[in-house]
Design a protein around this nucleic acid. Sequence first.
DNA 1: GCCTGAAAATGGTGGCGCGT
DNA 2: ACGCGCCACCATTTTCAGGC
Length: 271
Amino acid sequence: MANMEELDGSTSNVIYITEEHRIEWTHEAAKELLKLYDEKCDMLDSGIISTQKKLWEFVSKDMNKKGYYYTGAQCENKWKTLKRTYRNKMDKIDKYGHKRPCPFENEITEILSKRPQESTFNRSFLSSKLGRLKKKDDFYYQMNLNDPPGFSDDGESQDIKNVKLVQNADTTDEDFLQNTEYVVQDSGSSQIVEEISELRKVVTKQNKVQSDILRQSNELNQKIVHYLDGATQRECQTLELEETRMEQQNEIIKQMKLQNNLLQKLLDKLG
DNA sequence: GCCTGAAAATGGTGGCGCGT
DNA sequence: ACGCGCCACCATTTTCAGGC
């Protein structure tokens, strides 16, 4: 590689640019990219990040903090390339059964398995799944590290451990980005992002468990309702049968009375 | 409230140049 | 031949402003 330009003063995480301004991705940088992308996707899912574009800006900023100087667009491109390479490899496995090592196969598999909508081209599904979770005007999120989202009732707490990521209609996305940057830097950088991500996972898990319980409860209730409906129906049928039986008995009694009358008249004539 | 068209967002793909 | 990084373009969906 001729005429390389070293952008980073440190000896590690060195990035080179060629005469044609082609950047190079080191193995470590790509691995970091996948890790950050996975994290940021979690934040996108939970609505902390509003769009994919912002996601790549955040990834880029975090990469910069770790000494990897790539733009959001470059990060996005790298992800696309990695995904394409991954798919090509998988296609070849399907077609020819043989396998050459695919870089970051495990990492990409994990990311795609968590987000199946990304593994195939299906925009409508993607949109319905992720959605634009919030309209820009509604964009108002609060994160509290002591309490997972939705579990805190003290939004005004001044506890320094707490972190708030807030954007309302009066703030621009850029303001929000900068404020978020400020808060995150002040509060311990990527560790907090990781904690948010972890907390989100816990909440998601709890929500899933709750959802499962509710679903099972609903199924049980439906069965009970179904059983009760059946019981009511059977009871109605029993009543109807009973009524019919009573009517038949009345009819029998009526006929017997007529018979008795006739017999009485016959006896009177005979004797 | 509904409709419409422009703009934005997003993922996929083809092609180019380069290196191996 | 193949892989990689990048760019440009396409198809589709969503958002949003404007008009009725």
